[in-house]
């Protein structure tokens, strides 16, 4: 009874809250890191070093007037931010934050569900988020969001192909779709899959940048071109939901990358005797640390690179990434069969 209902419910509550807090603090982290890159201080006013800034932002967005344009398609306009936020959050269900931990005498797994098609679940769930963007652009009944949603749909569909192909070649290596299984596989083989599938890791990261609409692929919300893109007409809490969804997606991508390529919750250097003290650090800390490093790279890229143009982005997707993914798949399969 407890194991069937209470523990998962508690897990859900904990993870959901942790993710929401993490997302709001991601915003602060991003602002701080970008500020440091640009030799500024970033938010400093609310709390020491601006530590309470996300709370102030959240309050502001909650209290803001929520405007629905008169000509907007009211229902879809309200639905769109929900469609984009919910998948981003439920994707965390299968992400293993750690192995098993003992809590009050219970052995609790540090993941909500160990689904045997976990990777497939992630791919399909995150694809739903795109509909949020497309519907937001369509329902705003305004030109800039419309252009943005066209861009977003083209971009996401083409990068989805590359990403999914790459995942297939990863699966050829891992022989399982379960995320927990993938981490355990890396534990058994004593190697992170990033060393077996380096090309896949790079392409997946680029694809992840594109799918989360991050610089240099943030065409769908290109502020300088489309005045905010698909969320031009949104304000208040509904805007905040898009905002949360974007950052939640970033965390999902980083977490999945960590799980697939960087050994999930495993501590590094398991076979180096001198590094055995690293084992005393709990697995979930390793997981969070690795995820954080990837998130940092996301932000770092944003501070450095200009934005691609729409046609160049499509060219990169179809002419570079998809062929690379196909070749990688074939090579992985050959290696798998013959070696």
């Amino acid at each position: 009874m407890t194991d069937l209902f209470v523990v998962p419910l508690l897990q859900i509550v904990v993870v959901l809250n942790a993710v929401l807090v993490a997302v709001t603090y991601m915003v602060l982290l991003e602002r701080k890191i970008i500020a440091w890159v640009q030799s500024r201080l970033g938010p400093m006013r609310v709390g020491p070093h601006g530590i309470l800034q996300p709370i102030a932002d959240a309050l502001k967005l909650l209290l803001k007037e929520d405007i629905t344009p008169i000509r907007a398609d009211r229902w879809i306009f309200t639905l769109a931010p929900i469609i984009s936020l919910v998948p981003a959050l439920i994707a965390f269900a299968v992400i293993p934050f750690g192995g098993e931990a003992t809590l009050f005498g219970h052995r609790v797994p540090l993941y909500i569900a160990n689904v045997n098609v976990g990777l497939l679940y992630i791919v399909s769930i995150t694809s739903i988020g795109v509909y949020g963007i497309i519907l937001a652009g369509y329902s705003s009944n305004s030109k800039y969001p419309l252009l943005a949603s066209l861009r977003a749909s083209a971009q996401l569909i083409s990068y989805e192909v590359a990403v999914t192909l790459m995942l297939v070649s990863v699966i050829v290596t891992t022989r399982t779709l379960s995320l927990v299984g993938i981490v355990e596989g890396q534990m058994r083989q004593h190697i992170w899959y990033v060393f077996i599938q380096p090309v896949a890791a790079v392409v997946l990261f680029i694809g992840g940048l594109a799918e989360t609409n991050r610089t240099p692929f943030d065409l769908a919300e290109a502020e300088q071109e489309l005045t905010g893109g698909f969320h031009t007409e949104y304000s208040g809490m509904r805007f905040a939901m898009f905002f949360l969804a974007e950052y939640a997606n970033m965390i999902v991508v980083s977490a999945v990358m960590t799980t697939l390529f960087f050994g999930g919750w495993l501590s590094p250097f398991p076979n180096v005797a001198a590094a055995h003290f690293l084992w005393y650090i709990p697995g979930w800390i390793w997981f969070l640390l690795k995820t954080f490093v990837l998130l940092y790279v996301f932000i770092w890229i944003r501070a450095t690179l200009p934005r691609y143009r729409y046609d160049q982005l499509m060219r990169l997707g179809w002419k570079v990434l998809i062929p690379v993914a196909l070749v990688n798949l074939v090579v992985s399969a050959i290696v798998r069969v013959f070696l």
Partner: peptide, 16 residues
């Protein structure tokens, strides 16, 4: 100009 093309950091370097 760099900001328009999306390179945010150049903007602040220049203003510095």
């Amino acid at each position: 100009h760099a900001m328009d093309i999306g390179a945010m950091t150049v903007f602040l370097y220049n203003f510095r």
